Amino acid sequence: MRRPSARTLTALVAAALLGPLLSACGSDEPADLVIYSGRNENLVKPLIEKLEKHLGAEVEVRYGDSAELSAQLLEEGDTTEAGLFLSQDAGALGALSKEGRLAPLPQATLDKVAPAYRGSAGDWTGVSGRVRVLGYNPAQVPTPPSSVHDLVKPEWKGKIGFAPTNASFQAFVTGMRVLEGDDATRAWLKGLKANEPKAYDNNLKILEAVDKGEVPIGLINHYYWYEKAAETGAGKLKAKVHYLPAGDPGGLVNVAGAGVLKGADEKQAAYARKAVDFLLSTESQEYFAAETKEYPLVAGVKTAEGVPPLDSLQPPKIDLGRLDSLKQTLAMLQDTGLV
């Protein structure tokens, strides 16, 4: 067997010494915290960058639909690589909580958010809020209806815009099911179908249609109007926004939220808990208010200019974790011919 040259031996020794260092610096090194995020990358990326600096750790984010990520986490169980789930919707967090897949959060963390906007089991918390409202064109609708139930009356036939495949509309329908029962919700959906509503892909397209007079009224989330007003100037928008009073199901307040996954090793779980606290920090709460016009959920942080304070609203009282029954809602929407 031929013996290696002195140059070859030197190279082998150098490789042996440098190998561990190169491995540690390489892209194959696992992140300190893995986040499954149902929130849009364009929205949360600036916060994730700030989070990395705050933690002094590497954060890896895997983006997707909240309901699909929740189902994936249930399938992965204790084998998941994720330490934190950041959801667009409370229902996806409720599904994980129901199956015992979320770890308890410290009471000091939970106490930053009112009980109505966090999980009843103490294992997830909302980080920002959004309200269902009616967008309407005052030239066509001088006085908007006082209840979402009014929209099934004959006078609204052909005048309603909605987004039946959108997660926010489906969460609203789920909320109605929780509040009023399946029979009442199915009857409302049938009445809506009979009124021949116009379907759109998303809330923004509904708002644009209302603004153009294409439809007089539409079911949307509040922040779309305020974002558009900030972009174009409120005086240039023909569409207006109407908050529904007296606990009406059409005024549901839903939240985006976060929970720490069971099964994460203690190091990642510690980073995940710190990440939740960061999302509830004044810096993050002000980011949500300023950038997306969502509602900050921590006391003392103001809403964006023009957005009414959360405590001035009259949303229905509901356990947001019970918005987890999306499959039943989808089945009902299909049965009534709305999707």
Rank of each mutant, 00 (worst) to 15 (best):
A71N: 13
L333W: 02
Y295G: 07
A90Q: 03
K267N: 07
E76C: 07
G259R: 03
V113R: 02
Q334R: 11
K262C: 06
L326H: 02
M176E: 04
P115H: 06
I48M: 14
D78Y: 01
H242T: 01
S281G: 07
R186H: 12
K228W: 04
V298W: 06
P296D: 07
N202W: 05
D89E: 14
H149P: 00
G247D: 05
T185E: 14
E208C: 01
A14G: 14
A57T: 00
A16P: 00
K327P: 00
F162Y: 14
F85A: 03
G259P: 05
T185K: 09
G19E: 05
A184P: 08
W124T: 06
K212I: 00
D211R: 08
T336A: 15
G122H: 12
N40V: 03
K198V: 11
G233A: 09
V241C: 04
P4E: 08
R62M: 13
L333C: 12
V255C: 11
N166K: 06
K112I: 01
K228N: 08
L22E: 05
V59S: 13
L204R: 12
N254F: 10
V339H: 07
G158H: 02
R273G: 04
A121T: 09
A14P: 13
E208M: 13
G250S: 03
G235V: 03
A171Q: 15
E227K: 10
L33Y: 04
Y226A: 05
V13Y: 04
G191T: 02
K274C: 00
S23I: 02
A258M: 15
S281M: 12
V339Y: 08
H222V: 12
P315A: 07
L134Q: 06
L18A: 10
S87C: 05
D201E: 13
P249D: 15
S23V: 06
L110R: 03
Y271V: 00
E305L: 05
N40W: 05
E60P: 01
D89S: 12
A264K: 06
P245E: 10
S87P: 11
L151P: 04
A331P: 01
D335N: 15
A11R: 07
H242C: 01
N137S: 08
A167F: 02
G135I: 01
A14F: 10
P309N: 12
E52Y: 13
G26N: 09
G306E: 09
G321A: 11
P4Q: 13
N221K: 01
A246E: 12
M1T: 12
S146H: 01
V301W: 01
G64V: 11
L279M: 07
K190W: 00
A139M: 08
L84H: 13
V210Q: 14
D32T: 11
D248F: 14
Y295W: 07
V215C: 11
R130M: 07
H149S: 03
Y271F: 12
C25V: 07
V133P: 07
K190Q: 13
E60V: 06
P20D: 07
V215S: 11
T79L: 11
G119V: 09
Y295F: 12
D248M: 15
C25I: 06
A57V: 00
S97R: 03
L297P: 00
G337H: 12
L261H: 03
A184Q: 14
G158P: 07
T8H: 10
T10V: 09
G251S: 15
K262G: 08
G175M: 10
V241I: 15
E75C: 06
